[in-house]
Design a protein around this nucleic acid. Structure first.
Lengths: 220, 220
DNA sequence: CGCAATAATATACAATTGTATTTACATGTG
DNA sequence: CACATGTAAATACAATTGTATATTATTGCG
């Protein structure tokens, strides 16, 4: 049942033959260009993407076996990009006053910058083949881990206790992503308001996990 | 730019002419039957749906102007169905011990029963035309309101205070829906675990809102 | 250069799509 | 019973899709 799946990236770079006139990257960018707010990657047709990229339909096959394969590559790239910018933004703030609020704000701002990527992730999460969802799940888990570390640092710095930090990270991740996705179609003011709401929600979660850690019980 | 948009539901029911051999309901059910875990309503073709329903392609137009219109009807119905079962389940439990935990459990069980509907809602939320998203948003808001009322009742009964109940309802709604959606592709055991996690998360939120109401400040 | 190898294009084809037009059917009213 | 009327089906058509096959272009090596 296994398929040959030949890799092309690690091939001998100096073989005879024509040089590719287009890269996988350019193809992926062409696909992204076609993504308005109404369409998901998987709804793009091979011919559309080829047209946008300015190549003949069949040339697509030199780069991806089909649109789904391109979509997975796009999801991976989206995840990497998002994680990158968020990590960088966090660094820029590192020596600053820290704390929950600014972390959330930075997170939301980063999402703001990468709206298109975020949309890709969220769309393919709810649609799409098993492979898509696995790819997206992978990315969400990365976020959870990073957030978990961040929480650990906060705990370290302030001496608070947190009830199930893994669950806290999961809850915050899902919540922020979901809300961030809806931010795409809002005016800047509305977006600011949403960020504010999100900050409060995240605080509720952390505050609650905090309280539950000391009480170690149920809120009745 | 307006289109005539003739209504058909309120027409004189005793006009001469042939009786419809198929109802809108049956068409919608045919569409739902075609929805496996990989496809969204908007990806169904008119001909597919007609084929599944056992009618000629053109007959479709007698019932909906296009697939999108059917999708909106489906979203409405999904929302109504979900709200209905949840409300009913809650009634069945009303005189019982109440409380956060059982409410969440009932909520999750109801989602469980209506997985297909939930998937419809969540898919069309992230894809689809503005009309779709508005329809889904409408449904989510209904849920928030109901949850808000439920929270009000809890507050009334137990005398607790809650910090921004509207935001609490929003956070819980989004969280539970998002997690509920991912429950579709889990084994029963995993699903139980997820429910357990969700209960804890929701408790965190409520516990946090509770603590913040008395402290009225930031968890710093 | 010329030859081999590889990339890109050209052409073609069968499927499928949405829909316009036409035809057949059923049913309530006179 | 007709006849009018609303409904469904048949047929048709142009567009678009994914892909198979054949052709052309470009590059590096001897």
């Amino acid at each position: 049942m296994r398929r040959p799946r030949k890799k092309k990236q690690d091939e001998d770079p100096d073989k005879p033959g024509r040089k590719p006139a287009i890269s996988e990257q350019e193809l992926m960018q062409a696909a992204v260009r076609l993504l308005d707010s109404h369409r998901s990657v998987s709804s793009l047709s091979l011919r559309e993407i080829a047209r946008e990229a300015g190549i003949a339909p069949n040339t697509f096959y030199r780069h991806f076996r089909d649109v789904d394969e391109l979509a997975v590559a796009l999801i991976d790239q989206a995840g990497r990009g998002l994680r990158g910018t968020i990590r960088e933004a966090r660094k820029r703030l590192e020596s600053g006053r820290g704390g929950v609020r600014s972390s959330v704000e930075v997170f939301m701002e980063a999402l703001d910058d990468e709206q298109k990527y975020l949309q890709i992730l969220l769309r393919e999460m709810s649609i799409g083949s098993e492979a898509f969802r696995e790819a997206v799940d992978r990315e969400l888990n990365y976020f959870e881990e990073e957030l978990n570390d961040e929480l650990g640092r906060i705990v370290e710095a302030t001496g608070q206790k947190i009830y199930e930090p893994r669950l806290v990270a999961k809850a915050i991740t899902r919540l922020v992503f979901t809300l961030g996705a809806s931010a795409a179609r809002l005016t800047p003011e509305q977006r600011g308001a949403l960020t504010e709401e999100t900050v409060i929600m995240v605080r509720m979660i952390i505050f609650g996990a905090n309280a539950m850690a000391t009480t170690a019980g149920k809120p009745r």
